[in-house]
Design a protein around this nucleic acid. Structure first.
Ligand code: SF4
Ligand code: SF4
Lengths: 127, 127
DNA sequence: TAATTATAGATATTATGAGTCTATAATAAC
DNA sequence: GTTATTATAGACTCATAATATCTATAATTA
């Protein structure tokens, strides 16, 4: 019952990129991995998913690295989580006995509230 | 990012016990397993944890089985989750760079709200 | 061309949840 | 007291996904 280490890495990476944003530079994965003290190869895989979702921009080649796109201030914590872990679901129902089921409805309500809370929090708050 | 299947089983078992409560009888694990269509041996392990927490009462021997204790109406969904999965933590911080960390604080707030919501929901609502 | 960076895929490792099996203890019926 | 029925506990296996590594390739700059 927790978000994966991947989302942990992703949130930290985003926060770091955001904190360096004003300098406008590109930050290679090696620097990020050093800052976060994690494996750079694994971090690469995580960042690749953020790139795919356009939450960060990757630039290949010398002097390349990762940077934030225009409008990055709107990216939510929820966005990042979904990019890495997929949609969070507190409760996976293998049967689905219908809409009237109270267990399902209760868990769905709690889940919806949590998702709403995560959508309201943006990466920019993490700086 | 979801509660374990064990909590799923536990919530369903509690709901079933609650629904049969008026009859006052004890329900053996085999009947519960049949109703839920799950392995009875595994369900046993799950129920054992609920027994340990006093959320259900086990009676050995013929005509034995599981039943709900006095005051069961106060048992929350959160209680059951903790009994099976332990304290839910959305975010596990391996470093802990101090109280002022915004990532940690943000996730903790979302987590606290979710826990609060689960504490406010009781098993009795699931009948 | 050479150096530096990201990307993609295959693969390995690890951790944990999920489930089984067996032996033992407790209780009720007979 | 004996037997049948129930729960409990522990060791054990199995399956799956997260985590991590390795290698090859593509893109970009100097
Ligand atoms: S009872 Fe409700 S939560 Fe449980 S399996 Fe059926 S639909 Fe799903
Ligand atoms: S930056 Fe915050 S969330 Fe990240 S490791 Fe440090 S204390 Fe934990």
């Amino acid at each position: 019952m927790k978000f994966s280490r991947g989302t942990d890495y992703a949130l930290h990476a985003m926060a770091y990129l955001a904190s360096q944003q004003e300098k406008g530079g590109k930050i290679p994965v090696q620097e990020l991995a050093d800052k976060l003290a994690v494996s750079s190869t694994y971090l690469s895989k995580i960042l690749a998913r953020l790139v795919k979702m356009k939450y960060i921009i990757a630039t290949s080649g010398a002097k390349g690295g990762y940077s934030l796109p225009a409008g990055w201030e709107d990216i939510s914590v929820y966005n990042v989580i979904v990019a890495i872990d997929g949609e969070p679901t507190l409760f996976e129902d293998s049967f689905n006995h219908g809409d009237e089921c109270k267990i399902q409805r209760l868990m769905m309500e709690v889940e919806t509230d949590m998702i709403e809370a995560l959508k309201n929090r943006r990466i920019v708050e993490l700086i």
